[in-house]
Amino acid sequence: MSSKQQRKKIGGEHLQRIIDLCTSIEEKGLDPFLVDVEDILDVVREYFPEWELPEELSLDAETIHRLASVIKLQSDWVKHRSTSLYTDPFLLEEKIRKLTKVELATLFLEVWHPIVEFEQISPHSLTEAIKYWQSLLPIDERWLQIDPQKREAGTVTREELIRQRILAEKTFSEDLEAFWNELKEKVGENEKILYWDFVGANSYDETIQRAYLTSFLITYGYATLEIDRLEEEIFIKPYEEPVSMLGKKQVVSIPVSISNEEWMKWKRGLQN
């Protein structure tokens, strides 16, 4: 490589660095006075006689263009600082630091504008309030004393309350366990039993009670339902051990109608 080419290469790198510096000042908002304009102009001037090719001249023009943008930023900065409203933050900080506590407190007091809550009532609202007040009954009429009626407490036996279903003879879980055992006994070797054959009882009330308990047997994983859609039959299949279905598969609700007509139909079927 000749010395001229070597110089061109170094000059090109120089100009590229100047362009990068000016671009970063513009884009990142850095202090434009980081750029020494005179120095840069000297560099541009120094290499200018070397440029012959269009791309070399284009790089030179690009450098001048970027430098001009930085000079504009410098100009704007000077204009801003020269306005009367501008106060240098460092000067301001220094000024505050030099103030005594009393002077600082006095300054705060001078600029302090306390916020006062202010509520207004309109003449219309006032009229409404007076109307309401006048329509009120006297306080002694409003606060009527209610005489509590004294009642004698009676007595009742535990058995009576159990019969009325206020007291439970066994806990619900005990009831459920007993019901589960009954289901297992009734199913025997067959694995499953027709829903109505298990739930159905001599009275409709009892049938409802059994259907209620059955729903808990299924929900709590003591048993499951098998539906034969072709024959429209529902079977109950007890598990040997309670099975938790939580998180294992999607749980679905199956509505089963236990109307009085359904019960009568089942009862007639039994008799035939």
């Binding site: 009642r151 004698e152 407490a153 009676g154 007595t155 009742v156 036996t157 535990r158 309350l161 206020i166 007291l167």
Partner: peptide, 18 residues
């Protein structure tokens, strides 16, 4: 001790279980 209070036709019936 169990005391039951039942509202029967608007009247509170109080009974203590013996």
């Amino acid at each position: 001790h169990i005391i039951t209070v039942q509202n029967i036709e608007g009247t509170s019936a109080i009974r203590e279980v013996t």
